[in-house]
């Protein structure tokens, strides 16, 4: 009922949760830490249900930070086992997931996932790859700085690869050679003289087309000094925020609308730094994650809708 009501307004496309407070909850209720995490998982299930009923496209959750490996070993182990079991169960319910178009993505450092969990992760991703209606993006061994580093690295990699001319499989020298050999077969020398300036012009062409783009930039050195080797690279000046963004884990998702952190801590703690830098509404809630429920989430949504409306009014006024 309430959700049907909320649906009448704008709905965020991408929501991120930092699930903080499981251990404090466990401590307050005098239960085991791992038990707290289990309750946290239940809260996550609740939240996911609400989100997808509302029509949120992507939910990103911070499940495990790279820094979390510093925690007591049995806790890390408990968390890993939990991840394994949950993913295993999920895989068993593949058909249900398909029916709702639910997809799982895992963002993070793959190398750091323990070997016994990795196959389950891979299978879950593989099975739900085609589902795009409701995506759960799990950040698992993740820190935002590591993500940004790898994105920068990938960008550099992309630009450090010599980019081939548009038709890579065909080699110009081979073609000219072939022509030459054909010509030499057909007749004797005369036409070769004609062919060679031709082929020189061709190779000039290649150089020109690439270096002319560099020549357009006032900063870049004048033409003669650019060695022909670097002409094969993409111009680094063409790197933009978009380029880096395309190497982020979240590249395929819509921009982040709401960021929620529970347990009253007012930090981002290395989560979604790149993504939430603009137009993201950040909420810090006082409740601990296992307590997080509809009652906490609806005010957030309402406030977001309200602000969205205000912004739209402002935009409308500005346009007039």
């Amino acid at each position: 009922m309430l959700i049907g009501t909320l649906k009448q307004g704008p709905i965020p496309k991408h929501v991120a949760f930092e699930m903080d407070g499981n251990r404090r909850f466990a401590k307050n209720h005098q239960i085991e830490t791992v038990e707290g995490h289990h309750l946290g998982f239940e809260a996550l299930a609740r939240v996911l249900e609400i989100c997808y009923k509302c029509g949120v496209k992507v939910v990103t959750v911070y499940a495990f930070s790279i820094e979390n490996f510093n925690r007591p070993r049995h806790e890390v182990k408990g968390l890993m086992t939990m991840a394994k079991v949950k993913l295993e169960q999920l895989v068993q319910h593949g058909e249900l997931l398909d029916r709702y178009g639910a997809g799982i993505r895992v963002s993070g450092e793959r190398d750091l996932i323990p070997d016994d969990v990795l196959p389950f992760v891979d299978r879950a991703i593989e099975m739900t790859k085609h589902n795009k209606d409701a995506i759960l993006n799990i950040c698992f061994p993740y820190t935002s700085r590591a993500e940004m580093t790898s994105a920068i690295k990938a960008t550099v990699d992309e630009y450090a690869m010599p980019s081939r001319p548009p038709n890579p499989p065909f080699s110009q020298s081979r073609i000219t050679q072939k022509i030459r050999s054909n010509q030499s077969k057909n007749s004797d020398l005369p036409s070769i003289r004609e062919a060679s300036p031709d082929d020189a012009a061709k190779s000039d062409d290649v150089d020109d087309s690439v270096s002319s783009t560099t020549a357009l930039d006032p900063d870049s050195p004048p033409l003669p000094s650019t060695p022909s080797r670097s002409a094969n690279f993409k111009n680094p000046e063409t790197i933009t925020a978009e380029t880096i963004n395309s190497h982020m884990y979240t590249a395929e998702f819509p921009p982040l609308d709401i960021f929620i952190r529970t347990s009253g801590v007012m930090r981002l703690s290395d989560f979604m730094l790149w993504q939430c830098h603009e137009n993201t509404h950040i909420f810090f809630l006082d409740c601990l994650w296992p307590e997080f429920d509809l009652g906490n989430f609806v005010p957030v949504l309402l406030e977001w809708q309200w602000r969205q409306k205000k912004l739209m009014e402002k935009d409308g006024a500005a346009r007039k």
Binding site: S144, R145, M148, R267, L268, S269, D270, L273, W274, C276, H277, E278, N279, T280, H281, I282, F283, F284
Partner: peptide, 13 residues
């Protein structure tokens, strides 16, 4: 809280 494009790298902790 709206970061308005605040440097993402520096805001970690």
């Amino acid at each position: 809280v709206d970061l308005q494009g605040y440097p993402p790298w520096q805001i970690r902790l």
